[in-house]
Design a protein around this nucleic acid. Structure first.
Lengths: 196, 196
DNA sequence: CCCATCTTGGACTGATCAGTTCAAGACGTG
DNA sequence: CACGTCTTGAACTGATCAGTCCAAGATGGG
């Protein structure tokens, strides 16, 4: 059965990430990971490391994948910051609406569960989670916002964006999620057109 | 050692609630609960039921305690809806700042972990979590807001309020948390003074 | 065609989990 | 003072956990 790796690393990491994403770190056993990836326990250990190591890989994978999408959404911030923030929220709304992927947010639920994680993993989660605010601040400043306003809106938008996953998992409808971001986008549009 | 109950039920329920609040359902073992409450396993079972039953009691206790505070904060909505929403957020900000109580939010983290809970418990969590929105909607309508605006702001405020617990657990400072609610309160003030 | 190498599957370990059982013993009643 | 009742502590059960180990066997180089 062996001699050559019998699996595609990307496929396996995606499957593991989805498993952690759906059930969280504590409620994902190695048997769950084995079932989800199709790999045996010893194959997981030899190829992906122990549970903490694999979890960190999945966190990084998640942060990279959606971080890139967030960056792309915000890339037009200099020309149209309101459209950029709208596109930013659309990344999350699209992810929540995507039936191919769990609802919720791996980062948000890992942060919430951080007291139960090992300290080093918890620290890593918070670092990745904290990347969102500077990303937004830079975009808003590029869009012409003052330092102070950009700081305040950045943390607000990051918070609202994160809340969508919780509200979605709590059963809020897509319309309700759009209403949540609508208030923020309107406030941003007004802050950027103080003369309007 | 026995013949009469050796503990105060309120004290014990508070201790159990705090334990679930700090560590979540999955990462709270009966040994943890036994240590936190000072009660033996069999005493927990005979007096408080099994883990699910006790968890439900703690959820209800949490929802009642803070639900009452939220109601009190919103009671002045008819006269001053902006101050009411500000007071609403202050309940959460005060809770997060209170060192006597864990950061995070028992409801939010239970919702996030709901796929790992038993279906009936998950359903109960979502019901309790969903009480926030109608509470806010009624207050905003009492404050003179249109049905449509009240609905949108209610779900937005509920989302932002929930996000404070996540952001706080992720390490956001009290100033950042205030900035998050500041954007929402400003938007609300503007929506309520369309002629200003 | 053969052998060294490496993946794989499954069995195993010790720890911990939720939940049960029961004897020991403290209380209140008579 | 004696007895029934009820709480309590500790031991126990079967399941599941993360992590380890090793024989079986497929592969590719020589």
């Amino acid at each position: 059965m062996a001699g050559k790796k019998q699996f595609d690393m990307d496929t396996v990491l995606d499957a593991a990430m989805v498993q952690f994403w759906r059930s969280g770190y504590a409620d994902t056993s190695l048997d769950d990971l084995s079932r989800a990836t199709g790999l045996n326990r010893s194959s997981i250990y030899s190829s992906l490391g122990d549970k903490d190591t694999l979890f960190l890989r999945c966190l990084d994978r998640y942060a990279k994948r959606y971080g890139d999408k967030f960056d792309a959404a915000l890339s037009c911030a200099a020309e149209d910051p309101v459209a950029a923030v709208r596109a930013f929220f659309d990344v999350t709304l699209g992810r929540i609406a995507d039936p191919a992927v769990p609802d919720g947010c791996l980062m948000a639920q890992s942060v919430m569960a951080s007291p139960a994680l090992s300290p080093s993993v918890a620290e890593h989660v918070k670092e990745l989670f904290g990347l969102q605010r500077p990303r937004l601040r830079a975009a808003l400043k590029a869009g012409g916002m003052s330092d102070e306003n950009a700081e305040g809106f950045a943390v607000h938008v990051a918070a609202v964006n994160q809340s969508l996953a919780v509200m979605g998992r709590a059963g809020s409808s897509p319309e309700q999620l759009r209403a949540i971001v609508g208030v923020t986008v309107d406030a941003l549009a007004r802050a950027l057109r103080p003369l309007g």
